[in-house]
Design a protein around this nucleic acid. Sequence first.
DNA 1: GCGACCCGATCGATCGATCGATCGATCGAC
DNA 2: GTCGATCGATCGATCGATCGATCGGGTCGC
Lengths: 224, 224
Amino acid sequence: MRAAETAPAPTAQRVREAAFELFAERGYHGTGIRQLAERAGLSSASLYHHMGSKEELLGALMRESLERLLAEAQAVAARESDPGERLCALVRMHVRSHGERPLETRVVDGEVAALTGPVRAEVVALRDRYEALWHATIDAGLDAGQFHVTSPALARRALLEMCSGVARWFDPAGPTALPDLAEQYVDLARALLGATATAGRRVDGDTPRPVEISEGFSRSRAPR
Amino acid sequence: MRAAETAPAPTAQRVREAAFELFAERGYHGTGIRQLAERAGLSSASLYHHMGSKEELLGALMRESLERLLAEAQAVAARESDPGERLCALVRMHVRSHGERPLETRVVDGEVAALTGPVRAEVVALRDRYEALWHATIDAGLDAGQFHVTSPALARRALLEMCSGVARWFDPAGPTALPDLAEQYVDLARALLGATATAGRRVDGDTPRPVEISEGFSRSRAPR
DNA sequence: GCGACCCGATCGATCGATCGATCGATCGAC
DNA sequence: GTCGATCGATCGATCGATCGATCGGGTCGC
Protein backbone atom coordinates (compact mmCIF):
# COMPACT_ATOMS: atom_id res chain seq x y z
CA MET A 1 0.00 0.00 0.00
CA ARG A 2 1.05 3.55 -0.42
CA ALA A 3 0.31 4.12 3.23
CA ALA A 4 3.34 2.04 4.06
CA GLU A 5 5.61 4.92 3.17
CA THR A 6 6.68 6.68 6.32
CA ALA A 7 4.93 9.98 6.54
CA PRO A 8 7.47 12.57 7.74
CA ALA A 9 10.83 11.67 6.24
CA PRO A 10 12.73 8.41 6.21
CA THR A 11 15.69 8.58 8.54
CA ALA A 12 18.13 7.41 5.91
CA GLN A 13 17.03 10.22 3.66
CA ARG A 14 17.44 12.78 6.41
CA VAL A 15 20.97 11.51 6.96
CA ARG A 16 21.80 11.89 3.29
CA GLU A 17 20.43 15.40 3.15
CA ALA A 18 22.27 16.42 6.29
CA ALA A 19 25.47 14.99 4.87
CA PHE A 20 25.10 16.91 1.62
CA GLU A 21 24.47 20.12 3.51
CA LEU A 22 27.35 19.79 5.93
CA PHE A 23 29.89 18.34 3.49
CA ALA A 24 29.12 21.18 1.07
CA GLU A 25 29.20 23.77 3.80
CA ARG A 26 32.22 22.78 5.89
CA GLY A 27 33.83 20.06 3.83
CA TYR A 28 34.09 16.34 4.56
CA HIS A 29 37.00 16.60 6.98
CA GLY A 30 35.49 19.71 8.53
CA THR A 31 32.32 17.85 9.45
CA GLY A 32 32.14 15.62 12.53
CA ILE A 33 29.79 12.72 12.88
CA ARG A 34 28.23 14.39 15.91
CA GLN A 35 27.31 17.43 13.85
CA LEU A 36 26.01 15.11 11.19
CA ALA A 37 23.91 13.22 13.72
CA GLU A 38 22.54 16.42 15.22
CA ARG A 39 21.57 17.81 11.83
CA ALA A 40 19.87 14.54 10.90
CA GLY A 41 18.08 14.38 14.24
CA LEU A 42 19.51 11.25 15.87
CA SER A 43 22.46 10.13 17.92
CA SER A 44 25.90 9.52 16.54
CA ALA A 45 25.56 5.85 17.40
CA SER A 46 22.33 5.48 15.47
CA LEU A 47 24.06 7.01 12.49
CA TYR A 48 25.91 3.76 11.94
CA HIS A 49 22.70 1.87 11.29
CA HIS A 50 22.32 3.87 8.08
CA MET A 51 25.89 3.99 6.87
CA GLY A 52 28.96 1.82 6.92
CA SER A 53 31.40 4.54 7.81
CA LYS A 54 31.74 8.24 7.27
CA GLU A 55 33.80 7.69 4.15
CA GLU A 56 31.42 5.08 2.77
CA LEU A 57 28.61 7.56 3.18
CA LEU A 58 30.54 10.16 1.21
CA GLY A 59 31.32 7.63 -1.48
CA ALA A 60 27.71 6.57 -1.81
CA LEU A 61 26.54 10.16 -2.11
CA MET A 62 29.10 11.01 -4.77
CA ARG A 63 28.44 7.86 -6.75
CA GLU A 64 24.70 8.42 -6.78
CA SER A 65 25.09 12.02 -7.87
CA LEU A 66 27.44 11.16 -10.67
CA GLU A 67 25.37 8.22 -11.82
CA ARG A 68 22.31 10.39 -12.20
CA LEU A 69 24.26 13.08 -14.01
CA LEU A 70 25.71 10.49 -16.35
CA ALA A 71 22.30 8.94 -16.96
CA GLU A 72 20.83 12.31 -17.84
CA ALA A 73 23.70 12.98 -20.21
CA GLN A 74 23.23 9.64 -21.88
CA ALA A 75 19.53 10.34 -22.29
CA VAL A 76 20.41 13.65 -23.94
CA ALA A 77 22.89 11.95 -26.23
CA ALA A 78 20.30 9.37 -27.24
CA ARG A 79 17.73 12.06 -27.95
CA GLU A 80 19.84 14.53 -29.93
CA SER A 81 21.78 13.26 -32.90
CA ASP A 82 23.04 16.53 -34.32
CA PRO A 83 26.30 17.50 -32.53
CA GLY A 84 25.37 21.17 -32.24
CA GLU A 85 21.98 20.45 -30.78
CA ARG A 86 23.36 17.76 -28.56
CA LEU A 87 25.91 20.09 -27.07
CA CYS A 88 23.30 22.75 -26.45
CA ALA A 89 21.15 20.16 -24.73
CA LEU A 90 24.10 19.02 -22.65
CA VAL A 91 24.82 22.55 -21.51
CA ARG A 92 21.17 23.08 -20.72
CA MET A 93 20.95 19.88 -18.71
CA HIS A 94 24.23 20.51 -16.91
CA VAL A 95 23.36 24.05 -15.87
CA ARG A 96 19.89 23.12 -14.72
CA SER A 97 21.11 20.12 -12.80
CA HIS A 98 23.85 22.11 -11.08
CA GLY A 99 21.53 25.00 -10.32
CA GLU A 100 18.90 22.73 -8.83
CA ARG A 101 21.26 20.69 -6.69
CA PRO A 102 24.21 22.92 -5.84
CA LEU A 103 25.06 20.99 -2.67
CA GLU A 104 25.62 17.77 -4.56
CA THR A 105 27.85 19.49 -7.06
CA ARG A 106 29.98 21.16 -4.43
CA VAL A 107 30.52 17.85 -2.71
CA VAL A 108 31.22 15.92 -5.90
CA ASP A 109 33.61 18.55 -7.25
CA GLY A 110 35.37 19.37 -4.03
CA GLU A 111 35.69 16.20 -1.99
CA VAL A 112 37.11 13.69 -4.42
CA ALA A 113 40.42 13.95 -2.60
CA ALA A 114 38.75 12.82 0.62
CA LEU A 115 38.00 9.43 -0.91
CA THR A 116 40.55 6.65 -0.97
CA GLY A 117 40.91 3.26 -2.53
CA PRO A 118 38.49 1.64 -4.98
CA VAL A 119 35.59 3.95 -4.18
CA ARG A 120 37.65 6.89 -5.31
CA ALA A 121 38.63 5.12 -8.51
CA GLU A 122 34.99 4.35 -9.18
CA VAL A 123 33.96 7.97 -8.72
CA VAL A 124 36.77 9.22 -10.92
CA ALA A 125 35.77 6.71 -13.59
CA LEU A 126 32.19 7.94 -13.52
CA ARG A 127 33.34 11.52 -13.89
CA ASP A 128 35.57 10.54 -16.79
CA ARG A 129 32.71 8.82 -18.57
CA TYR A 130 30.61 11.95 -18.21
CA GLU A 131 33.37 14.13 -19.58
CA ALA A 132 34.01 11.69 -22.41
CA LEU A 133 30.46 12.25 -23.55
CA TRP A 134 31.12 15.96 -23.82
CA HIS A 135 34.40 15.34 -25.58
CA ALA A 136 32.80 13.07 -28.15
CA THR A 137 30.11 15.64 -28.83
CA ILE A 138 32.65 18.41 -29.33
CA ASP A 139 34.70 16.20 -31.63
CA ALA A 140 31.63 15.36 -33.66
CA GLY A 141 30.76 19.02 -33.96
CA LEU A 142 34.25 19.78 -35.14
CA ASP A 143 34.12 17.02 -37.74
CA ALA A 144 30.77 18.33 -38.93
CA GLY A 145 32.22 21.80 -39.29
CA GLN A 146 29.82 23.22 -36.73
CA PHE A 147 32.44 24.25 -34.15
CA HIS A 148 35.66 26.15 -34.63
CA VAL A 149 38.19 25.80 -31.85
CA THR A 150 41.89 25.04 -31.90
CA SER A 151 41.82 22.47 -29.13
CA PRO A 152 38.75 20.41 -28.35
CA ALA A 153 40.24 19.14 -25.09
CA LEU A 154 40.82 22.68 -23.91
CA ALA A 155 37.36 23.76 -24.99
CA ARG A 156 35.81 20.86 -23.13
CA ARG A 157 37.55 21.70 -19.90
CA ALA A 158 36.81 25.40 -20.16
CA LEU A 159 33.19 24.65 -20.97
CA LEU A 160 32.64 22.24 -18.11
CA GLU A 161 34.40 24.43 -15.59
CA MET A 162 32.36 27.41 -16.65
CA CYS A 163 29.06 25.55 -16.48
CA SER A 164 29.78 23.90 -13.17
CA GLY A 165 30.43 27.26 -11.59
CA VAL A 166 26.69 27.84 -11.56
CA ALA A 167 26.40 25.64 -8.50
CA ARG A 168 28.69 27.98 -6.59
CA TRP A 169 26.71 31.19 -6.95
CA PHE A 170 23.25 30.64 -8.43
CA ASP A 171 20.48 31.94 -6.19
CA PRO A 172 16.97 30.62 -6.98
CA ALA A 173 15.57 33.77 -5.36
CA GLY A 174 17.68 35.96 -7.63
CA PRO A 175 16.55 37.96 -10.64
CA THR A 176 17.21 35.24 -13.21
CA ALA A 177 15.23 32.01 -13.27
CA LEU A 178 17.14 28.81 -13.83
CA PRO A 179 15.74 28.00 -17.30
CA ASP A 180 16.66 31.48 -18.51
CA LEU A 181 20.12 31.12 -17.02
CA ALA A 182 20.56 27.81 -18.80
CA GLU A 183 19.69 29.45 -22.12
CA GLN A 184 22.24 32.19 -21.49
CA TYR A 185 24.84 29.53 -20.85
CA VAL A 186 23.87 27.86 -24.12
CA ASP A 187 24.60 31.14 -25.85
CA LEU A 188 27.94 31.46 -24.08
CA ALA A 189 28.86 27.89 -24.97
CA ARG A 190 27.99 28.42 -28.62
CA ALA A 191 30.09 31.56 -28.71
CA LEU A 192 32.98 29.82 -27.01
CA LEU A 193 32.91 26.99 -29.50
CA GLY A 194 32.57 29.33 -32.45
CA ALA A 195 29.35 27.53 -33.34
CA THR A 196 27.80 28.26 -36.69
CA ALA A 197 24.55 30.14 -36.39
CA THR A 198 22.26 27.27 -37.14
CA ALA A 199 19.27 26.55 -35.01
CA GLY A 200 19.58 24.37 -32.01
CA ARG A 201 18.19 26.75 -29.51
CA ARG A 202 14.87 25.27 -28.78
CA VAL A 203 13.75 24.88 -25.25
CA ASP A 204 12.44 21.50 -24.36
CA GLY A 205 9.64 20.88 -22.00
CA ASP A 206 8.34 23.28 -19.46
CA THR A 207 9.58 26.58 -20.74
CA PRO A 208 6.87 28.23 -22.81
CA ARG A 209 8.92 31.27 -23.68
CA PRO A 210 9.38 31.66 -27.44
CA VAL A 211 13.02 32.05 -28.26
CA GLU A 212 14.10 34.70 -30.63
CA ILE A 213 16.95 33.45 -32.71
CA SER A 214 20.03 35.55 -32.46
CA GLU A 215 22.72 34.91 -34.99
CA GLY A 216 25.84 35.90 -33.16
CA PHE A 217 25.37 37.67 -29.89
CA SER A 218 22.03 39.18 -29.24
CA ARG A 219 21.15 41.96 -26.90
CA SER A 220 17.55 40.95 -27.12
CA ARG A 221 17.26 39.64 -23.63
CA ALA A 222 17.23 41.92 -20.65
CA PRO A 223 20.31 41.71 -18.42
CA ARG A 224 18.21 40.96 -15.44
CA MET B 1 75.41 40.25 -1.31
CA ARG B 2 72.23 38.96 0.14
CA ALA B 3 74.25 37.05 2.67
CA ALA B 4 71.50 37.60 5.20
CA GLU B 5 69.40 34.98 3.48
CA THR B 6 70.07 31.55 4.87
CA ALA B 7 71.63 29.40 2.23
CA PRO B 8 69.53 26.22 1.92
CA ALA B 9 65.98 27.35 2.60
CA PRO B 10 64.59 29.49 5.38
CA THR B 11 62.51 27.43 7.72
CA ALA B 12 59.58 29.80 7.52
CA GLN B 13 59.58 29.41 3.77
CA ARG B 14 59.69 25.63 4.02
CA VAL B 15 56.69 25.76 6.32
CA ARG B 16 54.77 27.88 3.86
CA GLU B 17 55.57 25.60 0.97
CA ALA B 18 54.64 22.52 2.94
CA ALA B 19 51.36 24.15 3.93
CA PHE B 20 50.51 24.99 0.32
CA GLU B 21 51.28 21.45 -0.76
CA LEU B 22 49.30 19.72 1.96
CA PHE B 23 46.37 22.13 2.05
CA ALA B 24 46.03 21.82 -1.73
CA GLU B 25 46.42 18.05 -1.63
CA ARG B 26 44.31 17.01 1.35
CA GLY B 27 42.54 20.21 2.31
CA TYR B 28 42.95 22.36 5.40
CA HIS B 29 40.87 20.18 7.71
CA GLY B 30 42.38 17.06 6.19
CA THR B 31 45.90 18.15 7.09
CA GLY B 32 47.24 17.63 10.60
CA ILE B 33 49.80 19.71 12.40
CA ARG B 34 52.12 16.71 12.57
CA GLN B 35 51.96 16.05 8.84
CA LEU B 36 52.70 19.70 8.23
CA ALA B 37 55.69 19.57 10.57
CA GLU B 38 57.04 16.42 8.99
CA ARG B 39 56.76 17.83 5.48
CA ALA B 40 58.52 21.02 6.56
CA GLY B 41 61.23 19.07 8.36
CA LEU B 42 60.76 20.06 12.01
CA SER B 43 58.73 19.12 15.04
CA SER B 44 55.14 20.11 15.54
CA ALA B 45 56.16 22.22 18.52
CA SER B 46 58.73 24.20 16.51
CA LEU B 47 56.03 24.92 14.00
CA TYR B 48 54.55 27.44 16.38
CA HIS B 49 57.67 29.59 16.24
CA HIS B 50 56.75 30.43 12.64
CA MET B 51 52.98 30.73 12.82
CA GLY B 52 50.36 31.88 15.27
CA SER B 53 47.96 29.06 14.74
CA LYS B 54 47.00 26.69 11.96
CA GLU B 55 44.20 28.97 10.88
CA GLU B 56 46.38 32.08 11.01
CA LEU B 57 48.84 30.31 8.75
CA LEU B 58 46.10 29.54 6.25
CA GLY B 59 44.87 33.11 6.40
CA ALA B 60 48.34 34.53 5.79
CA LEU B 61 48.89 32.25 2.81
CA MET B 62 45.58 33.15 1.23
CA ARG B 63 46.01 36.86 1.84
CA GLU B 64 49.47 36.91 0.31
CA SER B 65 48.33 34.99 -2.74
CA LEU B 66 45.37 37.23 -3.33
CA GLU B 67 47.35 40.40 -2.73
CA ARG B 68 49.86 39.45 -5.35
CA LEU B 69 47.16 38.49 -7.83
CA LEU B 70 45.39 41.78 -7.21
CA ALA B 71 48.62 43.74 -7.60
CA GLU B 72 49.33 42.05 -10.90
CA ALA B 73 45.83 42.82 -12.11
CA GLN B 74 46.17 46.45 -11.09
CA ALA B 75 49.45 46.65 -12.95
CA VAL B 76 47.74 45.26 -16.05
CA ALA B 77 44.90 47.75 -15.68
CA ALA B 78 47.36 50.62 -15.40
CA ARG B 79 49.25 49.44 -18.46
CA GLU B 80 46.37 48.74 -20.84
CA SER B 81 43.79 51.43 -21.38
CA ASP B 82 41.76 49.86 -24.18
CA PRO B 83 39.11 47.57 -22.66
CA GLY B 84 39.61 44.83 -25.22
CA GLU B 85 43.34 44.73 -24.78
CA ARG B 86 43.04 45.04 -21.05
CA LEU B 87 40.80 42.04 -20.85
CA CYS B 88 43.14 40.00 -23.02
CA ALA B 89 46.01 40.98 -20.74
CA LEU B 90 43.96 40.04 -17.68
CA VAL B 91 43.20 36.62 -19.10
CA ARG B 92 46.83 36.12 -20.02
CA MET B 93 48.02 37.14 -16.57
CA HIS B 94 45.38 35.05 -14.81
CA VAL B 95 46.08 31.89 -16.76
CA ARG B 96 49.84 32.19 -16.41
CA SER B 97 49.61 32.93 -12.72
CA HIS B 98 47.31 30.00 -12.10
CA GLY B 99 49.37 27.66 -14.24
CA GLU B 100 52.58 28.61 -12.47
CA ARG B 101 51.24 28.34 -8.94
CA PRO B 102 48.42 25.81 -9.00
CA LEU B 103 48.78 24.95 -5.33
CA GLU B 104 48.09 28.50 -4.24
CA THR B 105 45.02 28.69 -6.42
CA ARG B 106 43.59 25.44 -5.16
CA VAL B 107 43.99 26.60 -1.58
CA VAL B 108 42.62 30.08 -2.22
CA ASP B 109 39.64 28.82 -4.18
CA GLY B 110 38.83 25.84 -2.04
CA GLU B 111 39.51 26.69 1.57
CA VAL B 112 37.76 30.02 2.06
CA ALA B 113 35.13 28.19 4.10
CA ALA B 114 37.81 27.03 6.53
CA LEU B 115 38.50 30.61 7.57
CA THR B 116 36.42 32.37 10.20
CA GLY B 117 36.04 35.86 11.55
CA PRO B 118 37.82 38.97 10.27
CA VAL B 119 40.50 37.10 8.37
CA ARG B 120 37.86 35.48 6.24
CA ALA B 121 36.18 38.81 5.58
CA GLU B 122 39.51 40.26 4.56
CA VAL B 123 40.19 37.44 2.11
CA VAL B 124 36.72 37.69 0.63
CA ALA B 125 37.16 41.45 0.23
CA LEU B 126 40.41 40.94 -1.63
CA ARG B 127 38.78 38.44 -3.95
CA ASP B 128 35.91 40.84 -4.55
CA ARG B 129 38.29 43.65 -5.46
CA TYR B 130 40.00 41.39 -7.96
CA GLU B 131 36.71 40.40 -9.54
CA ALA B 132 35.53 44.02 -9.59
CA LEU B 133 38.50 44.80 -11.80
CA TRP B 134 37.33 42.22 -14.29
CA HIS B 135 33.79 43.44 -14.09
CA ALA B 136 34.79 47.05 -14.75
CA THR B 137 36.83 45.95 -17.75
CA ILE B 138 33.94 43.99 -19.21
CA ASP B 139 31.57 46.89 -18.64
CA ALA B 140 33.97 49.27 -20.35
CA GLY B 141 34.26 46.91 -23.30
CA LEU B 142 30.49 46.74 -23.56
CA ASP B 143 30.17 50.51 -23.49
CA ALA B 144 32.84 50.79 -26.15
CA GLY B 145 30.94 48.33 -28.31
CA GLN B 146 33.80 45.84 -28.27
CA PHE B 147 31.98 43.06 -26.46
CA HIS B 148 28.55 41.61 -27.06
CA VAL B 149 27.05 39.67 -24.22
CA THR B 150 23.63 39.75 -22.63
CA SER B 151 24.82 39.76 -19.04
CA PRO B 152 28.24 41.12 -18.06
CA ALA B 153 27.96 39.65 -14.57
CA LEU B 154 27.33 36.22 -16.00
CA ALA B 155 30.16 36.59 -18.48
CA ARG B 156 32.55 37.64 -15.73
CA ARG B 157 31.73 34.60 -13.62
CA ALA B 158 31.91 32.21 -16.54
CA LEU B 159 35.18 33.72 -17.65
CA LEU B 160 36.87 33.61 -14.26
CA GLU B 161 35.67 30.11 -13.54
CA MET B 162 36.92 28.90 -16.89
CA CYS B 163 40.34 30.52 -16.49
CA SER B 164 40.87 29.39 -12.91
CA GLY B 165 40.29 25.82 -13.95
CA VAL B 166 43.76 25.81 -15.45
CA ALA B 167 45.22 25.38 -11.98
CA ARG B 168 43.34 22.11 -11.61
CA TRP B 169 44.72 20.28 -14.61
CA PHE B 170 47.61 22.08 -16.26
CA ASP B 171 50.74 19.96 -16.46
CA PRO B 172 53.98 21.87 -17.16
CA ALA B 173 55.43 18.67 -18.61
CA GLY B 174 52.50 18.37 -20.99
CA PRO B 175 52.41 19.08 -24.71
CA THR B 176 51.38 22.72 -24.41
CA ALA B 177 53.61 25.35 -22.84
CA LEU B 178 52.01 27.81 -20.49
CA PRO B 179 52.39 30.94 -22.68
CA ASP B 180 50.74 29.11 -25.58
CA LEU B 181 47.96 27.95 -23.31
CA ALA B 182 47.41 31.50 -22.12
CA GLU B 183 47.02 32.67 -25.72
CA GLN B 184 44.46 29.95 -26.39
CA TYR B 185 42.52 31.13 -23.38
CA VAL B 186 42.68 34.68 -24.71
CA ASP B 187 41.06 33.40 -27.90
CA LEU B 188 38.40 31.55 -25.93
CA ALA B 189 37.69 34.61 -23.83
CA ARG B 190 37.34 36.83 -26.89
CA ALA B 191 34.96 34.36 -28.46
CA LEU B 192 32.95 34.10 -25.28
CA LEU B 193 32.61 37.86 -25.04
CA GLY B 194 31.76 38.21 -28.71
CA ALA B 195 34.73 40.51 -29.07
CA THR B 196 35.08 42.39 -32.32
CA ALA B 197 38.08 41.13 -34.18
CA THR B 198 39.85 44.45 -34.26
CA ALA B 199 42.31 45.28 -31.57
CA GLY B 200 42.99 41.95 -30.02
CA ARG B 201 45.66 39.50 -30.77
CA ARG B 202 45.65 37.00 -33.49
CA VAL B 203 42.23 36.17 -34.75
CA ASP B 204 41.69 32.50 -35.30
CA GLY B 205 41.69 33.07 -39.04
CA ASP B 206 45.35 32.36 -39.53
CA THR B 207 47.13 31.45 -36.38
CA PRO B 208 50.88 31.67 -36.80
CA ARG B 209 51.37 28.55 -34.81
CA PRO B 210 49.04 25.61 -35.21
CA VAL B 211 48.80 24.52 -31.64
CA GLU B 212 47.20 21.20 -31.12
CA ILE B 213 47.03 19.11 -28.07
CA SER B 214 45.70 15.64 -28.31
CA GLU B 215 46.49 14.10 -25.02
CA GLY B 216 43.98 11.47 -24.01
CA PHE B 217 41.08 13.21 -22.42
CA SER B 218 40.28 10.43 -20.01
CA ARG B 219 43.22 11.28 -17.88
CA SER B 220 42.24 9.45 -14.74
CA ARG B 221 44.08 10.49 -11.70
CA ALA B 222 45.62 7.65 -9.83
CA PRO B 223 43.64 6.60 -6.79
CA ARG B 224 46.79 7.21 -4.81
C1' DG C 1 73.88 35.27 28.96
C1' DC C 2 70.47 36.47 25.86
C1' DG C 3 67.48 35.77 22.12
C1' DA C 4 66.37 32.83 18.19
C1' DC C 5 65.32 28.38 17.26
C1' DC C 6 64.25 23.66 18.13
C1' DC C 7 62.73 19.57 20.65
C1' DG C 8 60.32 15.69 23.68
C1' DA C 9 56.59 15.31 26.52
C1' DT C 10 52.12 16.25 27.36
C1' DC C 11 47.81 18.89 27.83
C1' DG C 12 42.44 18.82 27.31
C1' DA C 13 39.36 18.30 23.60
C1' DT C 14 37.51 16.02 19.94
C1' DC C 15 37.76 12.56 16.50
C1' DG C 16 35.45 8.20 14.28
C1' DA C 17 33.68 4.16 15.85
C1' DT C 18 31.80 0.40 18.98
C1' DC C 19 29.44 -1.56 22.81
C1' DG C 20 25.43 -3.41 25.42
C1' DA C 21 20.84 -2.13 26.46
C1' DT C 22 16.28 -0.53 25.48
C1' DC C 23 12.11 0.37 22.88
C1' DG C 24 8.13 -0.65 19.87
C1' DA C 25 6.53 -3.43 16.11
C1' DT C 26 5.91 -7.89 14.03
C1' DC C 27 5.12 -12.83 13.96
C1' DG C 28 4.47 -17.80 14.67
C1' DA C 29 2.91 -21.11 18.18
C1' DC C 30 -0.51 -22.55 21.01
C1' DG D 1 -6.20 -13.72 22.05
C1' DT D 2 -2.03 -14.17 24.29
C1' DC D 3 2.76 -15.02 24.90
C1' DG D 4 7.63 -15.37 23.97
C1' DA D 5 11.02 -14.63 20.13
C1' DT D 6 12.86 -11.80 16.98
C1' DC D 7 13.92 -7.65 14.60
C1' DG D 8 15.12 -2.84 13.17
C1' DA D 9 16.08 1.35 15.22
C1' DT D 10 17.74 4.11 18.68
C1' DC D 11 20.25 5.43 22.75
C1' DG D 12 23.97 6.69 26.55
C1' DA D 13 28.46 5.47 27.59
C1' DT D 14 32.82 4.83 26.21
C1' DC D 15 36.74 3.14 23.48
C1' DG D 16 41.64 4.21 21.55
C1' DA D 17 43.48 7.50 18.48
C1' DT D 18 44.39 11.88 16.98
C1' DC D 19 43.53 16.67 17.11
C1' DG D 20 45.63 21.62 17.85
C1' DA D 21 48.28 23.70 21.09
C1' DT D 22 51.46 24.44 25.20
C1' DC D 23 55.24 23.91 28.35
C1' DG D 24 59.92 23.62 30.07
C1' DG D 25 64.19 22.85 28.79
C1' DG D 26 67.89 22.29 25.47
C1' DT D 27 71.37 24.15 21.82
C1' DC D 28 73.88 27.54 19.47
C1' DG D 29 75.50 32.07 17.66
C1' DC D 30 76.49 36.44 19.08
